[in-house]
């Protein structure tokens, strides 16, 4: 991993029921994620993805870039902007900002149809 390198892109299209599965897995049952009628009543286009689900995709992309060992991800900081929707492809992209020895910093973002739903994400990795 060298400064300026792109990490491999991660592309995921969450299916319609993904927010239900993530709600069960995480314990976050906020109705904006699982109830389409509620979501439209509060002005959303449909149920929306949990931000922390999208953050988990950013974590996956960085862990994979470091070789796949879950111990490699030392720190991850993200900003959530806009909202992620089910049934639309999410692309996670990252650029290595710093790499020295066993240590790397990766600037990452997650984008969906041109909308950057996770911005200014910074991942700190330990490399083999």
């Amino acid at each position: 991993m060298n400064e300026g390198d792109q990490i491999p892109e991660l592309r995921v299209t969450p299916d319609k029921y993904l927010p239900h599965r993530y709600a069960g897995a995480s314990g976050d049952f906020n109705p904006i994620h699982i109830d389409g009628e509620f979501a439209s009543q509060v002005g959303l286009p449909s149920t929306i993805l949990h931000g922390l689900y999208t953050m988990a995709l950013v974590a996956r992309a960085n862990t994979a870039a470091a070789g796949g060992d879950p111990r490699a991800l030392r720190r991850l900081a993200v900003q959530f902007r806009g909202m992620g929707l089910p049934e639309k492809e999410i692309v996670v992209r990252g650029t290595v900002r710093e790499a020295s020895g066993e240590h790397a910093l990766v600037d990452t973002e997650a984008e969906q149809e041109g909308n950057r739903i996770v911005r200014n994400a910074e991942a700190e990795l330990t490399l083999d």
């Binding site: 931000g51 922390l52 953050m55 879950p70 111990r71 991800l73 030392r74 720190r75 991850l76 900081a77 993200v78 900003q79 959530f80």
Partner: peptide
């Protein structure tokens, strides 16, 4: 309210 940001710093699995 919106969830604006999140950070985790891990020291062990």
């Amino acid at each position: 309210m919106v969830h604006g940001g999140q950070e985790f710093a891990w020291s062990d699995l």
